[in-house]
Design a protein around this nucleic acid. Structure first.
Length: 541
RNA sequence: GCGCCAAUAGCUCAACUGGAUAGAGUAUCUGACUUCGAAUCAGAGGGUUGAGGGUUCGAUUCCUUCUUGGCGCGCCA
């Protein structure tokens, strides 16, 4: 049981005599920003005084009388009616042994028995991943890590669009590049993929098959499409892997479409919500959340992207998830109400799908915005980014910003100043702690940590105690940036402690062994937090 | 025109989801290595939280009207 829980219980039992029926989760314990306000504070008196017809301050004073004071130095009422707790040093210090005992599991939440599917990246296999995908990958992967650590059952999924116009264009581009390699004077049309990787794949194709496929037949194009998709997708997976992002499930659009499944879904489940106009079939999404009805079958008989996508989301739900999360670029926001409407047609709540929008990243080079485009191949790829700036720095950069924040990525600044990336501040703190532990390996650690009393030490311990709650909040709101902010704060306290309190002092082993316990606890928490956002915790730098 | 997202220190971003004196980094200035790693620390300056109105004990946070910017508004995905 941690300190916050204990305080909540004390408050709850103090409230028993009043007719308030407050859940434990309604009682909010806050960290104080100011030492004069004690270690922790609660606003219950402010919140509920009016329901009892009392003045907040008076009610707070009443409560203080009946709260169990064990482990507490003193309780004060302040301001409009805050109740401030000043804890005994032992109470705070005792947290350290608990953290060390839990180790890698410190901060892990209890099992929630909630199955969540997070789909992210899902980029078309028509070219390299770029800057925007990097942000989505960093945010999506971190969300999954936080979910998992907080106690949710999470599956990471990638939806591979291997049907439709995009991949047909890929085949066409590949075919033309292939012909060009034989000296033919054919130009790439404007709307094909111009990036260099298509030439690489065409070259590989030529090296494998020679001139066997110069006939421009439909069979050849189909074969090239298969070939191109496979090569592109292999590349994507490899790049994501080196970005420390992996998936549990890959679903291909072709599998969703298999055996006329999409036709069946449309006919059997959506017939009453469709109508035909100008030869196309429309879905009445306006009956639910949308502002326009959406075409699901084009007048040429082909599905639009939406219909297989709907079938795909229904498939995910049929696998037993309590919640679907799609992490999408903000330019897809129009998509949300369409999909939710379709799911609602099948009786699902609109909340069964949550879409996490990640704002567009603008690439700045030489002080100017550089438009990224898969078609022209302009921009910077995830791979180049990792090579130039480093995986840790890139991930940290993206995760430390709220997904909703619009941000500019200045390439020159990122490469040139990568050494001033805040990630190194945290990693350095971790390396310093490891160094101390290594140098003192012969000294016994005092798990009771009874000799800690300096302000820098107390601040640090209280920061360590925040971690579990932070994990919960971060997961519940899908905000991994909270973890990054926490890491900065913790690293700050660690550095301050390091300079103020010398740890290893062989003439004073009592204090040394207590401080070593604190050092160990900090090292654990820092590492756990960094792992949550996919950043390494090095022992040396 | 309609919709979604945003606007906080010179710059890049926070603010525990409605709490007490709005905080970090960076940049500028001043100090600190004979000691566990100076990729660090201590300190200074820097704010009408885009503007107005509302809700209440209390608003950067919620509602509303503007302003500015980004992104959408296809039988593309």
């Amino acid at each position: 049981m941690n300190i916050e829980e204990t305080l909540k219980l004390k408050i709850q039992s103090a409230l028993k005599g009043y007719n308030l029926s407050l859940e434990l989760s309604d009682i909010i314990i806050e960290n104080t920003k100011n030492k004069e306000h004690g270690d922790y504070a609660t606003n219950v008196a402010l919140k509920s005084a009016s329901r009892l017809g009392k003045k907040p301050r008076d009610f707070a004073l009443e409560l203080v009388e009946v709260i169990d004071k064990e482990g507490i130095e003193k309780i004060e009422v302040a301001g409009p009616g805050f109740i401030n707790f000043f804890l005994k040093k032992d109470t705070i210090n005792s947290a350290i042994s608990m953290i060390i005992a839990k180790g890698d599991d410190y901060g892990r939440g209890e099992k929630k028995n909630k199955k969540i599917n997070v789909e992210f990246v899902s980029a078309n296999p028509t070219g390299d991943l770029h800057l925007g995908h990097a942000r989505i990958a960093a945010v999506g992967d971190s969300i999954c890590r936080v979910y998992d650590f907080a106690g949710y059952d999470v599956d990471r999924e990638y939806y591979l669009n291997n049907c439709g116009n995009q991949v047909a264009t890929l085949a066409m581009s590949l075919n033309i590049r292939y012909h060009q390699l034989f000296g033919e004077k054919v130009e790439l049309p404007e709307d094909s993929y111009h990036a260099h990787d298509i030439i690489d794949i065409a070259t590989e194709f030529k090296n494998t098959y020679g001139d066997k496929y110069l006939d421009n037949s439909k069979e050849t194009l189909d074969f090239m499409m298969e070939y191109g998709i496979e090569k592109e997708f292999e590349k994507i997976k490899r790049d994501l892997e080196s970005f420390r992002t992996s998936f549990d499930i890959y679903t291909k659009e072709s599998d969703v479409r298999k055996d006329n499944h999409v036709q069946d879904v449309l006919k059997n489940k959506f017939a009453k919500y469709t109508y035909v106009l100008d030869g196309a079939t429309f879905l009445k999404t306006t009956d639910f959340l949308d502002d326009k009805d959406r075409p699901v079958v084009k007048s040429d008989g082909q599905f639009t992207y939406l219909m297989p996508d709907i079938a795909y989301h229904l498939d995910k739900l049929s696998r037993g998830y309590d919640l679907l999360v799609d992490v999408l670029g903000a330019d897809h926001h129009g998509y949300i109400n369409r999909m939710k409407s379709a799911l609602m047609m099948q009786g699902y709540s609109k909340d069964v799908l949550e879409v996490e929008l990640v704002q567009i990243v603008r690439l700045i080079k030489d002080g100017k915005e550089m438009k990224m485009s898969k078609r022209t191949g302009a921009g910077i790829t995830l791979r180049e980014l990792c090579e130039d700036v480093g995986v840790d720095a890139v991930r940290y950069f993206f995760v430390s910003r709220a997904a909703s924040s619009h941000l500019d990525f200045d390439l020159d600044l990122a490469t040139e100043k990568s050494s001033s990336n805040p990630v190194y501040y945290a990693q350095y703190a971790h390396a310093r702690l490891c160094n101390v532990l290594e140098k003192s390996s012969d000294i016994e650690i005092d798990l009771s940590a009874k000799n800690l009393k300096e302000p820098a030490e107390v601040e640090l311990i209280k920061c360590l105690l925040d971690f579990p709650r932070l994990v919960e909040t971060s997961a519940a709101n899908r905000e991994p940036n909270l973890i990054a902010t926490y890491i900065q704060r913790l690293a700050g306290f660690v550095h301050a402690f390091y300079s103020e309190c010398r740890v290893i002092d062989r003439d004073n082993l009592d204090v040394t062994s207590s401080r070593l316990a604190l050092v160990k606890a900090c090292q654990i928490v820092l590492k756990n937090a960094l792992t949550l956002i996919g950043v390494s915790a090095p022992k040396k730098m």
